[in-house]
Simulated assay, not measured.
Amino acid sequence: MFQKKQIIYSETLGTCVVDNIVSLSATKRGPSIQYYVLKTMFDNKVSYIPVEHHQVVLRDMFTVGEAKQLKDSEQYKKDKHLKDAVDYVLKETVGKEEQT
């Protein structure tokens, strides 16, 4: 389970921050279901994705090593969400290295 304020990657949304985790129900007496409230980092969209049994592939953000490998791939050139995520990881790493 992801945590609030965690930055994650969604294959359909791209780089997102888990803004909140909420329980929603279709009716007042119906069972409630937990949802991630995801805010995209680059185009200000908000999506509600069920915590369990979701169809969307969600994963932890790429490591620096994974990002470097992906940057050399064909997929990086073709997939805008992937490109943005890889560039984000590499930019954050450079920024942190410069601060030390």
Rank of each mutant, 00 (worst) to 15 (best):
Y48W: 11
K83R: 15
K78V: 04
A85P: 08
D19R: 14
R59V: 08
Y35I: 04
S73L: 07
G14E: 03
M41H: 08
E52F: 06
D72Q: 15
E52V: 09
R29N: 12
G65D: 00
L58P: 12
T27R: 06
V51L: 11
V57E: 15
K39S: 13
H81Q: 12
Y35H: 11
T12S: 15
G65S: 07
K80L: 14
V37R: 02
A85T: 11
C16Q: 02
K83M: 14
V86W: 01
K80C: 10
D87R: 00
V18R: 05
L82N: 08
P50H: 09
A26P: 01
E74A: 13
K80V: 13
K45D: 05
D60P: 08
Y35T: 02
T27I: 01
E52T: 05
I21W: 03
S25G: 11
L58E: 13
H53F: 10
K45R: 00
F62A: 09
A26L: 09
L82Q: 05
D60L: 13
V46D: 14
Y76L: 07
Y36M: 08
E74T: 11
G65A: 05
E66G: 04
S23I: 01
R59C: 12
R59T: 12
K39N: 14
K80T: 12
Q34D: 15
D72C: 13
D43G: 03
D79A: 10
H54D: 02
Y48Q: 11
V22C: 10
A85S: 14
N44Y: 11
L82I: 06
K68S: 03
L82C: 12
Q75V: 14
T12N: 14
S25R: 12
V56P: 01
Q55T: 10
I49S: 11
P50E: 07
A67T: 01
A26R: 09
Q55H: 09
P31A: 07
A85N: 05
A26I: 01
I21Q: 04
I33G: 03
K45W: 01
R59N: 13
D79N: 15
L82D: 03
K39Q: 14
